[in-house]
């Protein structure tokens, strides 16, 4: 598929590795310093959504599969995690694991159905299946309906560390994010990631080379769903709330927008996109439905003018400059 800012050319390129290391160091400093300057809840929200967007991008950017129903995994995990923490009284790490496992399971079922069709049908199927989850959550007794599941306890991490302390919670969220992000990075750079990209770019050819394309797609789908669930579970603990907003189609749209703004198929793009979209929601919340219009307009602008996204554009720029200077030398 041609739509992704390709990293294929960059794979053997040492320059992009040092660039990534630089970005990681900068991000580390930023993460450590940020809670002293910015409202920590906002940071935690941004981190949860960044992980969500990265998980989504694993499927879209590297698998070429546009899922329009990722809210299902995010939201279902939030409910399961909330249920585990509140009703079953599990510790936070176990609750999060329960939520993640539930999304992974959901991902197995939905992924197995959705990969039977390709391209645009895949998107419509994932959207329809996610809407089914939404209606289920509207009716199911344990979700609390329109009110959502409220007052989910953050609890004590490993039974020791009190997560009601904001700084402790922040460190925990950062740790969860880094674990999730690390898994995605490792996956993308692994042989599995290479095959996934090969399938994205030319599926019949990958199949003719002996790769079982559907198996790879399903595995990518499940991984993406599980990590989206990890993000959703963590979000449920941060806000102590799981609500219908988390499973609504608009949430699926938002995660697409985050990835599109940041740059599909780039490692850091979804993080940047998530921060921008979350900031937009936070600072423009008083404008009501204008946020929806702004998001719509951003979609249109991104598709028409800015398909590579922010990070994608930066990569293009750097690569062009490097290419130019080596030509002179």
């Amino acid at each position: 598929m041609s739509f992704v800012v390709s990293e294929r050319k960059a794979a053997p390129n040492l320059g992009s590795t040092s660039l990534r290391v630089l970005a990681v160091v900068a991000a580390g400093v930023l993460l450590a310093a940020a809670p002293f300057f910015v409202y920590p809840i906002f940071l935690m929200k941004a981190l949860c959504f960044a992980l969500f967007a990265c998980a989504f991008n694993l499927l879209l950017g590297y698998g070429g599969l546009l899922s329009f129903g990722h809210a299902a995994y995010f939201g279902a995990a939030a409910y399961v995690c909330g249920y585990a923490a509140k009703t079953l009284g599990l510790t936070p790490e176990l609750s999060i694991l329960a939520g993640t496992a539930a999304s992974a399971l959901l991902g197995v079922g939905f992924g197995w159905l959705a990969i039977r069709r390709q391209g645009i049908y895949f998107s419509m199927i994932t959207l329809a299946l996610a809407q089914m989850v939404f209606f289920f959550c509207v009716q199911a007794p344990f979700t609390g309906g329109e009110d959502g599941m409220q007052a989910i306890p953050r609890g004590y991490l490993f039974g020791i560390i009190d997560l009601n302390n904001t700084l402790a919670m922040y460190v925990f969220v950062v740790a969860v994010f880094l674990i999730g992000f690390g898994i995605i990075w490792r996956t993308v750079d692994s042989p599995f990631g290479e095959v996934l990209r090969a399938i994205r770019d030319n599926e019949p050819r990958a199949i003719s080379l002996g790769y079982k394309a559907n198996r790879y797609k399903l595995l990518a789908f499940v991984l993406s769903a599980a990590l989206a669930g990890l993000a959703g579970s963590t979000k449920a603990l941060v806000f102590q709330l799981a609500s219908l907003t988390d499973v609504h189609w608009a949430m699926s749209g938002e995660v697409v927008l985050m990835t599109l703004i940041g740059g599909m198929g780039t490692i850091f793009g979804p993080v940047v996109g998530a921060v921008i979209v979350v900031a937009m929601q936070n600072y423009l919340a008083h404008l009501g439905s204008w946020v929806m219009m702004i998001q719509g307009a951003t979609f249109i602008a991104c598709v028409l003018l800015f398909r590579a996204g922010i990070v994608g554009t930066i990569i293009h720029y750097l690569r062009a400059r490097r290419g130019g200077s080596s030509g002179q030398a």
Binding site: L66, M293, Q295, F299
Partner: peptide, 11 residues
């Protein structure tokens, strides 16, 4: 096409 028309729908 899907993303663009989704944007139009949101707008």
């Amino acid at each position: 096409g899907l993303l663009l028309t989704f944007g139009v729908a949101l707008l």
